[in-house]
Nucleic acid binder design. Structure first.
Lengths: 205, 205
DNA sequence: ATAAGGTTTAACCAAATGGTTAACAAAGAT
DNA sequence: ATCTTTGTTAACCATTTGGTTAAACCTTAT
């Protein structure tokens, strides 16, 4: 029986370092030497544990995506009401991303660079689909509690309002002339602001 | 008097090629040889006209940003009503980006990678600020035509709903299970869908 | 103790890459 | 016509980079 967990685990050190560097510089911008330095180890060890840059990257990307996928799934597959889903997702997502500010950029950038990743990840992770959400929304529209809107459009809007500010942070900070603290405060406000905005937009009057 | 415009202009060829490659691969992922091939010229010519990869990139980035900045400026500085601004921006922006689908990704990615770009660009382009929009919105809130909302938040929401779908295209296509045509159709719908959504959200009932 | 297996390192390597050079071609200017 | 400037190319160069190797170092089961 091989117990690998001596109190300093090289493999974990590498993954953490790779996460930092890849999220900061992207696949192409990252250097293996840089990752090794960040992890405080010899470069050859990276290849000993993860064979190639590509494989190391895919491991990191997969891990990052696994963190975000369940949150999106919660909009689509939970059993709560549309209104509750919007409230919960908005609050939870903004809280989560405030602690992982590089994540969305990293994921969307690499997803755009290499479309294959989606299909790769789709196979290994329980990947959400829109079907259940669609039926739920159609029911509420029929009941008349919600104005007519396509599930796809509402779904896009929910994601957009929550995720975009973090993708556009440098631009937003510059145009609204806010410093780091004020920006964070704006995001904090959005935990309720965004859900009110959406619910206002779709509630029948 | 030096008339440079013989009917094939190498400098323009290079810029067009660089635009394609940089937008597809990013600063780090692009290869000078690849740009030369795309332009159909010798690699040394790139350096003859633009000295270094960095400078060529900055020229391309600047040009790209110059295309988007005036559109954002129109939300902030136009003299029309808030409602008209939202309608016009939504329609114009989605039309514009549908013809330049790589643009937003390119800009936001490089802006996140290298924050200095913002200050560089800010100096050379008439860069929009939020002040005028803020006053306009405060007036409308006081009049009671619009529910209370911070200018910053509304501005972020407008940008988010319009820009995000293009940044998240691969993810959205995958989750909503739509092909290229259906996606384009969704975006076409959004030209009115998004402005209705926003106006619904902020109109006092 | 020591043999065995996993872990770590310094040194090395080939390919790729941004950039340069020197020679050549084309186009104006005189 | 020829001289000068501008545009273009093939060949070259130094450095960077992902990846390999062979030896050294631990840990541990016997």
């Amino acid at each position: 029986m091989k117990l690998k967990t001596k109190d300093s685990n090289t493999e974990t050190d590498i993954l953490n370092a790779a996460e930092v560097i890849f999220q900061r510089k992207g696949l192409d911008g990252a250097r293996m030497q840089e990752i090794a330095d960040e992890a405080g180890i010899n470069k050859a060890l990276l290849h000993y544990y993860f064979r190639s840059k590509q494989l190391l990257f895919e491991t990191v990307f997969h891990k990052a995506f696994s963190l975000i996928a369940p949150q999106i799934k919660s909009i689509l597959d939970d059993n709560s009401s549309i209104e509750d889903k919007i409230k919960n997702f908005t609050h939870n997502y903004i809280t989560f991303i405030s602690e992982h500010p590089y994540l969305p950029n990293f994921i969307f950038q690499e997803l755009n660079r290499n479309t294959d990743f989606i299909s790769k990840v789709q196979k290994t992770i329980g990947f959400p689909t829109i079907d259940k959400f669609k039926k739920q929304l159609e029911r509420e529209v029929k009941k008349g509690t919600v104005i007519p809107i396509k599930a796809e459009q509402l779904f896009i809007n929910i994601l957009a309002l929550n995720i975009f500010p973090f993708l556009a942070k440098p631009l937003i900070k510059s145009i609204t002339n806010t410093d780091e603290n004020t920006f964070n405060h704006l995001m904090e406000e959005r935990k309720t602001e965004v859900s009110n905005f959406i619910i206002n937009a779709i509630k029948r009057k």
